[in-house]
Amino acid sequence: MRRGAFHYLIVPGWHGSPEDHWQSHWQRTLANSRRIEQADWMQPQRPDWVTELHRGIVAASAPVVLIAHSLGCPTVAHWVAQASPEALRCVEGVLLVAPADVERPGCPEPLRNFAPLPLVPLPFPSVLVGSGNDPAASADRARAMGEAWGSEVTVLSGVGHINVESGHHRWEEGLAFLHRLQTLIGEQAQRRA
């Protein structure tokens, strides 16, 4: 499936994604992409974040592929749990990267209002990429989230939170996971035809 056939929505996590974050780089290089902006990146409120995601999805002019990082992943899960069937049909798939476990011991206080985390299958193809040493989610927890969401799961070794602090600026290797998601979307479309 052609990349230009989608509208990519970048869904950042807590604190947003700075200019040198891979999500910002991808936004600059992927055609038909834009970022979900939040009013408050420091004190996220689940209802507000989910509302902004919903606005971005329904306003898109083409089928949507979500590219979520960290707290963006629980935001997607909460949106799915409350979205209408019509809104859900706007999304073709989601790439979930370094999902934040908002139920973990020691979870930062500003993220706790995203718990409990909906752990039900997503109604579209998804690929989850976790890390064996991510402070925001253990490898086991990332796998459990991905399995509950029906995602194809990969846990990378020693890549941290897959953000600027862990050395992931352009993260061109990550585009292989986006390509894999697009393949899954194409396979699903063929089954429906």
Score class of each variant (00 low, 15 high):
Q38F: 12
D134C: 08
V80H: 02
P116K: 08
V65N: 00
R28A: 15
L178N: 03
N163A: 11
Q190D: 13
V129C: 03
A189S: 12
M1G: 12
Q27V: 10
P105I: 13
V58H: 11
H7E: 11
H54W: 06
P123F: 04
V65P: 00
V129Q: 00
F6I: 04
D140F: 07
A59E: 11
T183S: 08
V153C: 12
P135A: 10
A189P: 02
A176L: 11
G130K: 03
A100C: 13
H169D: 14
R35L: 09
V50H: 00
A136N: 03
A39N: 04
V127A: 05
A83G: 03
P74N: 07
S126R: 03
P123V: 04
E187K: 12
R55I: 09
A77I: 05
E152A: 09
P74E: 07
R46V: 07
T183D: 09
V76L: 07
T75H: 05
L66M: 08
L184M: 11
E109I: 13
V11D: 04
V120Q: 14
W26P: 00
A39E: 08
R34W: 09
S157M: 08
A68T: 05
A115M: 11
P123K: 01
R28P: 04
V50M: 07
I162C: 01
T75K: 02
G150A: 05
G93W: 05
P47K: 13
H21R: 06
L156F: 09
M1L: 14
A60N: 06
V11W: 01
E103P: 02
E187N: 13
A144F: 06
